[in-house]
Design a binder for these strands. Sequence first.
DNA 1: CTGAAAGCGCTTACAG
DNA 2: CTGAAAGCGCTTACAG
Lengths: 345, 345
Amino acid sequence: MADTARRPEPRYGTRPTMKDVAARAGVGLKTVSRVVNAEPGVTPDTERRVQEAIEALGFRRNDSARVLRKGRTASIGLVLEDLADPFYGPLNRAVEEVARAHGALLINGSSAEDPDREQELVLALCARRVDGLIVIPAGHDHRYLEPEIKAGVATVFVDRPAGRIDADTVLSDSFGGARSGAAHLIAHGHRRIGFIGDQPRIHTAIERLRGYRTAMAEAGLEIHDDWVSLGTTAPERVREAVTAMLAGPEPVTAIFAGNNRVTVTAVRVLAAHHRPVAFVGFDDIELADLLDPGVTVIAQDAATLGRTAAERLFSRLDGAVDAPSRVVVPTRLIARGSGEIRPSA
Amino acid sequence: MADTARRPEPRYGTRPTMKDVAARAGVGLKTVSRVVNAEPGVTPDTERRVQEAIEALGFRRNDSARVLRKGRTASIGLVLEDLADPFYGPLNRAVEEVARAHGALLINGSSAEDPDREQELVLALCARRVDGLIVIPAGHDHRYLEPEIKAGVATVFVDRPAGRIDADTVLSDSFGGARSGAAHLIAHGHRRIGFIGDQPRIHTAIERLRGYRTAMAEAGLEIHDDWVSLGTTAPERVREAVTAMLAGPEPVTAIFAGNNRVTVTAVRVLAAHHRPVAFVGFDDIELADLLDPGVTVIAQDAATLGRTAAERLFSRLDGAVDAPSRVVVPTRLIARGSGEIRPSA
DNA sequence: CTGAAAGCGCTTACAG
DNA sequence: CTGAAAGCGCTTACAG
C-alpha cells in the first residue's frame, strides 16, 4: 500500500527476492541461486550464510520468474465439461496424479458444454504457457488450436475427439458399449427399446446412438421414430422423454440411457411407473447395486481415461514425435437386475 | 530442436514475441503493447499494421511474463482432499465460477488427507505466486503459511478450520447437523444409537461426534463404548464397524454415519441385514431417495461452501482488511424413510 | 568456488 | 501519437 519505501526493508505485501538474500548474506546473486537450486560448488560456510539469510527474510523463490526464464511452466491445463459432474472426478484425479509424478501443477476449468467458453479457457491457458493441455471438447472445430500446437503446446483430447484437427485422443468405446447394452436388452426378449441420449452435437451421444441402432439392426428390429430422443440432460427434458416413450398404445418395454445424467432421472421416473420396464444405462453410478432392481449399466473407466491421456501428454512433453494416436478404452457391462427384466406383454 | 537460427524466422516450438511483432510491423515495442492491451493513443493505421503482424506471426501474449511485471498472477489455488470425491465437485465448480467472474484461473490439487502433501502443494502454489488460496486442510498446524499470508497471499479455509493460525474460515454446521440427526433418531424411539465417523484427526469428524453425544446427553441417554467407531472411510473398515454394532445381545437399533463415504458403505451393509435398522447419514448422496427405504440425511450445501469461501477470498484481494471471519453454513435434515424406522424390539 | 552481465517477454515511467 | 530505457525475479553463459 504505502509505496514510499525504496526497498531497504521488505514491506508488508512485498516479498524478498534473491537480490535481497544476496545483499543480506553478502554474496552474489548467482550464489543464492546455486543454494536455492542445490547446485554444487558452494562452500559449506557460504551456503550456511545464504540459508540463514533465506530464513531470516522468509524468502521463497518466485517460480513464475523462474519459469519465464526456463521456458517451461511445469503446469498443464485440463478443460472438462463440468467440475461438479461426478463422472469427471476420477478422471480429474487421475490426471492430477500423473501431473504430480511429473512435478507439474494442474489448472482446471469447466467449458459448461459451451464451445466459446471452451475456446476462451483453452486460449487463456495457452497464454499462461501451460506445457500441455488435456481437453474434453465441447466444440467441433479446434483449428483455433493449431498455432498453439505448432508453437509447442502438447494437446490430448479425452472422452470426445477433436474437431477438424489431428491430435492424440483417448476415448471410451461408446459405440461398442452401447451396442452391447442394447443387445443385452434384445437378448432378454425386448423388441421395442427406447434410446434417450445427450445432445446430438456431442460425439459420445451420436456414437452411443449408433451402437444402439446397430444392435437393433443386427437383430432385424425396426426402430420407431418415437423411440429415440436426444437433447439436454436436464431432468425435465429426460422426464418428458421417458414419460412419452411409456405412453401410448405401443409403449417401449425397455430403455437405454445415453449417460449418467440421463440414467439418474430415468431411473427415478421408472421407479414411479406402474409397470416394470427394463433399463440399461451408460456410465456406472453410485449405489446402482442397491436400487430395486439393481441398475444394469455399461461402465466406463474414467480414471483410466484420465491416466492414459495424461501419460500420453507427458510422453509428448518428453519428446515423443510419433503420429497422433487414438486409444479406445473398453467399457464393461454390469448386470444388476434392471437390464434382465423381460417384457411384460 | 535445431537451435541454430538466430531468430529471423520463428522456428517450430518457439513463439513470436512482442519484439517480433514490432519488428514486422515496423513500430516500437510499446506500440505493440498498446494495441495488444487495447490502450488508447494509437492511429488506426498503426493499429492495423500491428494487428496484421500479430495475425501473420500467430502472436499470443505471454501472460506469464505480463504477470511477472504486474505483480498479480490472476490465479488462485484450491487444495482439497480428493478431486475424485463427489462431495467436492460442486464446491470446486462454485469456486471456479467465482474465480472466472474475477478473471482468475484455478489451480487444483488433492491433499489425499496427508498433511505433508497439503503443505507441499500449498507452498508450491505460493511459489507460483497465486493471488489467493482456498484450503480444505488435512493438517492441524498451518503456521507454515504465516510468512506467505504476511507476504500478501489471501487465504481462506473451507470445510475445516485452520490449525494454530487465525484465518478466514467457512464451515458447515457439523455440530448442529449431527445433533439434529441424532435427535431425529431419538425422537423416533431409539435409545441404542451407533455413530460411525471419519478419523478423529479430522475436525468435522469430531464435531459431528460431539453433536451426536450432545443429542444423546440431552435425551438423558448413555453411550456405550461399542457404539462409537471412528476411523478411515475405507469400505472394509466401515463394514466391520457396522457389523460389530449390529452383533451381540444388545445391538444398536439405529446408526448415524459421519459422512458420505461412510453412508455409502453403511447403507450397503444395512440392505443385507436381516432386520431393519434406522439410519441417518451426514451428506446427501445421489439416488438416496430411490433406495428402499429412502436414506434420511443431513445435507450440506457444498456449492454455498465453495462460493462463500471464494467470495471472501476475492473481497480480501480487493482490499478488505477486517478481522478474519468465520462463516457457518447451515445443514438441512431430509427425511426419506430410513431415519423414521422405529426400533423393532 | 564465486559473481557480473545479459536475457526470458512483458509493463512502467518518461521523454519526445 | 510513439518509443527507448529500465525493471519484474529469476537463469544462462561466461569469466575469473
